[in-house]
Amino acid sequence: MNLYAIRRRDFWGTPEELQETAARSAEVGAEMSDDVRWIRTYVVQEESGKLGTVCLYEGTSAAKVREQAERTGMPADEITLVADTVIVNPDPGKVLA
């Protein structure tokens, strides 16, 4: 599988809406586990005041990653193949589960 970064902009109005979508995403991901695996998500505050995300997924193709998003009912504004990973320090901040 390849690693993909997915940018989702201005989609959620509240953290609760995002959590509902995350639960649905996990369900769809379980259905598609041979093709897509959700790694992590960074929630970002958009200029509009809404929430967006930067997500990392493993996938057999960008098309399968997009399919997972569509089946979940969320956007995948940009899907980019990750060429490499450089870790300097562990991720800071709190983790939402």
Score class of each variant (00 low, 15 high):
residue 17 E to H: 13
residue 83 A to E: 10
residue 42 Y to K: 09
residue 93 G to L: 03
residue 39 I to T: 11
residue 77 D to Y: 04
residue 21 T to W: 07
residue 1 M to W: 02
residue 15 P to D: 13
residue 29 G to K: 00
residue 25 S to W: 12
residue 64 K to D: 07
residue 45 Q to T: 10
residue 73 G to I: 08
residue 27 E to L: 15
residue 54 V to Q: 05
residue 60 T to R: 14
residue 36 V to G: 00
residue 2 N to T: 04
residue 22 A to H: 08
residue 91 D to L: 15
residue 40 R to L: 05
residue 94 K to T: 09
residue 6 I to H: 00
residue 9 R to L: 07
residue 93 G to H: 02
residue 50 K to N: 15
residue 31 E to A: 10
residue 14 T to L: 03
residue 5 A to G: 14
residue 94 K to W: 10
residue 80 T to L: 09
residue 60 T to S: 13
residue 19 Q to F: 05
residue 41 T to H: 05
residue 34 D to Q: 14
residue 73 G to W: 12
residue 2 N to D: 11
residue 86 V to M: 15
residue 70 E to Q: 12
residue 29 G to P: 00
residue 80 T to S: 11
residue 7 R to C: 07
residue 30 A to L: 14
residue 57 Y to G: 01
residue 9 R to T: 12
residue 15 P to Y: 13
residue 65 V to E: 00
residue 35 D to L: 05
residue 87 I to V: 13
residue 24 R to E: 15
residue 52 G to I: 00
residue 35 D to Y: 04
residue 60 T to L: 02
residue 12 W to E: 00
residue 70 E to C: 08
residue 5 A to L: 15
residue 97 A to S: 12
residue 66 R to H: 04
residue 61 S to F: 10
residue 4 Y to V: 02
residue 20 E to Q: 14
residue 46 E to S: 07
residue 84 D to G: 11
residue 97 A to K: 15
residue 88 V to D: 06
residue 14 T to C: 04
residue 52 G to F: 01
residue 76 A to P: 01
residue 5 A to C: 14
residue 78 E to W: 10
residue 65 V to F: 01
residue 47 E to C: 06
residue 96 L to K: 02
residue 95 V to Y: 10
residue 23 A to S: 13
residue 70 E to K: 09
residue 72 T to N: 11
residue 80 T to W: 14
residue 52 G to M: 01
residue 75 P to Y: 03
residue 87 I to Y: 12
residue 46 E to G: 02
residue 4 Y to Q: 02
residue 39 I to P: 01
residue 76 A to S: 11
residue 54 V to C: 07
residue 83 A to Q: 10
residue 64 K to Y: 04
residue 8 R to P: 02
residue 76 A to H: 08
residue 49 G to Y: 05
residue 20 E to H: 08
residue 12 W to N: 00
residue 86 V to C: 13
residue 42 Y to Q: 11
residue 76 A to E: 05
residue 34 D to R: 12
residue 31 E to G: 11
residue 68 Q to Y: 08
residue 14 T to A: 03
residue 15 P to C: 06
residue 90 P to V: 08
residue 72 T to K: 13
residue 66 R to T: 03
residue 35 D to W: 03
residue 64 K to F: 05
